[in-house]
Write a protein that binds this DNA or RNA. Structure first.
Lengths: 360, 360
DNA sequence: CTGAAAGCGCTTACAG
DNA sequence: CTGAAAGCGCTTACAG
């Protein structure tokens, strides 16, 4: 099929140079386009490239130019809508800027995160984006800070996305969203509807994202003169199974009569489980109990009732993280905070409506 | 902080060799562990590596060893549950085998798929996995086949995942699932419940996945002696918006009285839209109309009613694709087909139940 | 505008 | 078991 015959060996820049009757340097310059070359050379090189179906070897290029043209993104998984959306945003922006995207998943495990980072270090990615909250431990900080430094030393960037910074000394960029405020807004909304006992369900103590949402819950309660009863804090895990189990148990303990009028779920997945527990206990949402979630994943709008939740700019988070990581002008340790907003749907109603019903 | 001082430069294998008092060859061998080395050398090298916080340069390694240690996966997007799950499976298997994962998204656009492949070619990935159906055109085939050949020439593999092969000459592996059979099973299930007019909604003509499902629908109808009325084929697009729009329109045209008793949706997302259209038209599922989806994405179980659908081993698809791509023993042009099965939930009922209701 | 040559940081026959 | 050296395929000062 091919006239050249020698199809068994991937053509190199030398083959192109030979066929185009120019030096390898000229081939390199034409292809990079970063240096003046004559029109004649350009034409001959392009033809040779096409004839040979030549593609440059990215590793050789990276080795000699000291730039890898890749962006790395590390996250817990890629199946959860939140992470998937952030990954998509990051991937889009990377592609837009002609970069390739390396991806590593950790299952939310700190040790695996570190191991992944180590593997990624070898790749010399231009920027490494770490996505999502983490368990706030000194060890983790201690491991990450020097990594930020060593990346910076070779001109790479560490971007912490949807997670807090490493402190003033570590050269890490932060791209996050106003997590605490989103929680504040959500709980304030419930309080403005007359709810006073707002159960917070889901999340893990010490996990950054979780702690911030608890803080928002607490602040909202305080601002409205309501009591931040620790008994209303149902922390432990993530996921709909947790929300389902803990709410079911609590309902069972109080004889089916809830000791709360509203639930602020850690996220939409937890809300899903809460909704199910409530339904199975014969409680109607929002008539008997109001529920609000967090994230506004696609699912939220399709639930019955459609879920009132906090919208997080997930794709934008990923896009911005890569943009900042690749921007030569970005301040060495800057931080950008994206906004969140409450999406009002059908899962919240005035608290008053239940009491009369219960008295009947 | 460091005693060496010269922290501004990433340490190389020479630095390690120098500090460990051995040759670079020995360092390389100790690190690779693929060649006998003395315990003393090993200890000294390991210490030097730790002292310097050395990590090998993956590009240099790839260049001289001709192996990149990376796997590439290209898909339409990473936010759709189907693709996300396949990507997760691929990523897991890649990590398990110590490979890094490059990811490229195309938005389902053939031109972008080719462009991505081109970029990926430069990387010399060990295996390139192309995920998902595509529009069956001669041009696409013509572009892909030589790519498979050129990959094979340098010892890489092309794996087509959830899409048909390129024909007997192209050295491409196929990892897919029995798509047509899944459709056959779904529609047979409806037929066995007495349905005769089964509307197929969603999918695009010429799109491989879609064509296969239509074929399964047709075969099931034939096997049960029912008529494959072309008027029951509602093809055009993917997504819940399409399902919603087309079913709403059809219902409006027939005065709200459906001219079908069941819907076989292209996938769970289309089913979502169909469910909404039915609900808004005052039709109950499954009492008035039965619905079955495809894929069994997490959402399906949470719908009301919970959706009967065809389960596709999504993560397993990704895992197997990478495993095959990395398996030296895999036959040069083999193909593996994973099974699907019907998941029975609450969206299907006997067709008979509606007629009496309609006669009242 | 172009070429010759050094060098990027590894791996791997080849000797010993 | 170990070292010296060639070589992987590019890029980029350095000369011209």
């Amino acid at each position: 099929m091919t006239s050249t015959g020698r199809r068994d060996q991937k053509p190199t820049i030398r083959d192109v140079a030979h066929r185009a009757q120019v030096s390898v340097a000229t081939v390199s310059r034409v292809l990079a386009g970063n240096y003046p070359t004559s029109a004649a050379s350009q034409a001959r090189v392009r033809k040779a490239v096409a004839d040979l179906d030549y593609v440059a070897n990215a590793h050789a290029r990276a080795l000699s130019s000291r730039r890898s043209n890749t962006v790395a993104i590390v996250l817990a998984n890629v199946t959860t809508p939140f992470y998937a959306a952030v990954a998509q945003g990051a991937q889009d922006e990377a592609a837009r800027q002609g970069r390739l995207c390396l991806i590593g998943t950790t299952g939310g495990d700190a040790a695996r995160e570190l191991a992944t980072i180590e593997l990624l270090r070898e790749q010399g990615a231009e920027t490494v984006v770490l996505v999502g909250g983490f368990h706030r431990t000194p060890e983790h900080y201690e491991r990450l800070a020097p990594y930020a430094t060593s990346l910076a030393a070779v001109g790479s960037r560490l971007v912490l996305c949807a997670r807090p910074g490493l402190g003033p000394d570590a050269p890490a960029h932060v791209v996050t969203y106003d997590n605490e405020h989103g929680a504040f807004a959500a709980v304030s909304h419930l309080l403005s509807y007359g709810h006073r006992r707002v159960l917070l369900v889901g999340g893990r103590e010490g996990w950054t994202t979780s702690d911030d949402r608890v803080a928002g819950w607490r602040r909202a309660l305080g601002a409205h003169g309501a009591q931040a009863d620790p008994g209303l804090l149902v922390l432990g895990e993530f996921g709909d199974a947790f929300g389902y189990r803990r709410v079911s148990e609590r309902l069972a303990q109080t004889g089916g009569e809830p000791d709360f009028t509203a639930v602020f779920a850690y996220d939409d997945h937890v809300a899903l489980g809460v909704l199910r527990a409530l339904r199975e206990a014969g409680l109607r949402v929002p008539h008997d109990v109001s529920v609000v979630g967090y994230d506004d994943v696609p699912l939220a709008a399709h639930l019955a009732p459609a879920l009132t939740t906090v919208s997080v700019p997930m794709e934008e988070l990923g896009r911005t993280a890569v943009r900042v990581g690749l921007d030569p002008g970005a301040s060495p340790t800057g931080s950008v905070v994206l906004g969140t907003h409450l999406v009002l749907r059908d899962s919240v109603e005035h608290a008053a409506t239940r009491r009369p019903a219960a008295r009947e």
